[in-house]
Write a protein that binds this DNA or RNA. Structure first.
Lengths: 335, 335
DNA sequence: CGGGCAATGTCCTTGATGGTCATGGTTCAA
DNA sequence: TTGAACCATGACCATCAAGGACATTGCCCG
């Protein structure tokens, strides 16, 4: 079924059919009606490959998601999809495991679709470095900053991770906690949001003159319940007298709480726990999770806007912060 | 940058370049090397639109996800993506909100990419009815049965929802519960997995001769924490003496537990709760969630296999059940 | 009768593939 | 030694399904 068949069927030429299908002028109402009738009857659709070939455009926007365990992602993705649908863009989502070596392959396949823009979600900047940087279109990194990384065409929209983490530690210190542990994805890599959160913690601890021994009080974990459970166990071994834990993600906080309880300790009576992300689930847990709520919808909306601007207007890269909200919760108590 | 430029640049003809780029024989190793070098240097990529236009093939497989709140979905999606990457398929994920009216638009955009196959996740069969049924390619419905729905080209892979729910209720009855409430997405529509779970409950209650008043003991909810919270409140109002609740999804169970606690009741001392899905999170909650663990990886793997078989071999639709595992948990107690 | 205009068709273009054919060279077996 | 088979290669053309420039047609009106 091609446009020619429709032309033959309706008794008009391909040009006229093309005009009708693309809502162009210079077609009589009669022809339009007749052709549309045939199109409806046959369920015909333009061949998008041919159309795009001719028009030199491509299919849409590719979204690269790294890490399936971040509970904030589904809501961001849904919002992104919805925004893109509004404007008629197709959206190719690549869902990669956090540890996957599949990035190169995914980038290759992604490049073949010639997307007009890229959205990255999760996993810091490594996504971009490994393969995707070869795709010469604008991109926006969501929930992490790309400032100063030397990618001209990569914007970013995220929470001010450093400042938010500073607020969290301020809060804990104000409540009287001094033996605070950090459960983080810290790798010394401060291009990673989790690393920045860790940096924020250290900033405040230092400014307030609270002693901190990174070897005992800081443990790294990946974004998974099982991993953060293990990590929390190590923390409790190394520092049995801790009174508060800052987990760099809600997922980690939940894993940590389980570990704390399995040691026979209570949250928050024995150990206070603060998370980061503000997933809806946190408010349904017992105790309700104290966390930093990231504005996932704001991040999604702004990212899509930036990307479309860059695609249409050729705007340069910009880096935006979206307000967060510190959400006190029952998982933290005063000492 | 076209294949002609590469040909000129490398000193070979387009035919040879085409052969190299498509890994075809009859090319000397020397030519292959030289051409690949130029390709690498220029970052050239074939125009996939032109290629697909000529070859009459399309981009890959579209995955339609309806409902962002199902906590089982991310792991299924990641697995699907991984399996498809293994075989070199692109994967277009459409992430729709459960209640979204966007299905038609999404189907339109999806159709324009001419996918070779469709995977549906969530939301029963309505996804397919509304728009996607016009796309004439094989499909597989994941986590819900498509048997007997009259779609020739739609396979399905799912858990035996009816039987699993029967097991759950057997378990509750064996523990002495008789005043059992059901929190379900029941709509009388038994093509919906949640409806089937409800049906399973009713089967067992009836077989065991336990009185059940659907108007008091059965409440419907959507797949969201907030909705199931509300629904559980209604249940507690209508039936203050209930001792156990079956929630048709883990998300609902978590919302329900919050509602129960906000009434000053304890889980499981006052009210036992059973969920359905077996998300990893359940084992990290307090109390650990009693649930039915669906084999999300098995469902993903089998669905991809069925779909690829249907695409390649033209195999007809088939409907498969994947084993589940009933997972006892602390959220249920004996009476 | 000719200018103006709307409706419509002809023909070319897009980037890649694949088939045909010709060429020049090599290998192998009779 | 010679002919057949084979290989790497490139030139050329058709093909794919659409879009767009331009040409053509037919009609109305002054």
């Amino acid at each position: 079924m091609t446009i020619k068949d429709i032309a033959r069927e309706s008794g008009y030429g391909v040009t006229t059919v093309s005009r009708v299908l693309n809502n162009q002028p210079n077609v009589s109402e009669e022809a339009r009606e007749k052709i549309l009738e045939v199109v409806r009857r046959t369920g015909f659709r333009l061949n998008s490959n041919a159309k795009r070939l001719k028009q030199q455009t491509s299919s849409g926007i590719a979204v690269v998601v790294k890490g399936t365990n971040n509970m904030l992602f589904p809501s961001i993705l849904q919002r992104v999809q919805s925004r893109l649908l509004d404007t008629g863009w197709a959206c190719l989502i690549n869902y990669l495991d956090e540890s996957a070596d599949e990035v190169e392959e995914a980038a290759r396949i992604c490049a073949e679709t010639h997307p007009l823009g890229l959205l990255f979600l999760g996993g810091g900047i490594e996504n971009f470095r490994r393969g995707f940087s070869a795709i010469p279109v604008p991109g926006v990194l969501m929930t992490a900053s790309a400032r100063g990384l030397g990618f001209d065409s990569l914007s970013s929209v995220c929470t001010d991770d450093v400042y938010a983490a500073e607020c969290v530690i301020e809060h804990l210190l104000d409540l009287g906690h001094t033996r605070i542990a950090i459960l983080s994805g810290w790798t010394g890599d401060e291009s990673n949001p989790v690393g920045l959160r860790c940096r924020g913690c250290l900033n405040t601890l230092e400014r307030r003159g609270v002693p901190f021994d990174a070897r005992r009080q800081l443990v790294t974990s990946r974004f998974s319940l099982a991993d953060s459970y293990e990590a929390m166990c190590r923390l409790l071994d190394a520092m049995p007298d801790l009174t508060a834990v800052f987990a760099a993600a809600d997922v980690m906080a939940i894993g940590a709480i389980r570990a704390i309880r399995d040691r026979g300790l209570r949250v928050p009576e024995d150990v206070s726990v603060v998370g980061f992300d503000g997933v809806e689930l946190g408010a349904y847990l017992t105790p309700k999770l104290c966390t930093v709520r990231q504005d996932s919808e704001g991040i999604a909306d702004r990212s899509v806007e930036l990307l479309l601007d860059a695609i249409h207007g050729g705007a340069g890269a910009s880096h935006e912060l979206v307000p967060f909200r510190f959400t006190p919760g029952e998982s933290v108590r005063q000492i």
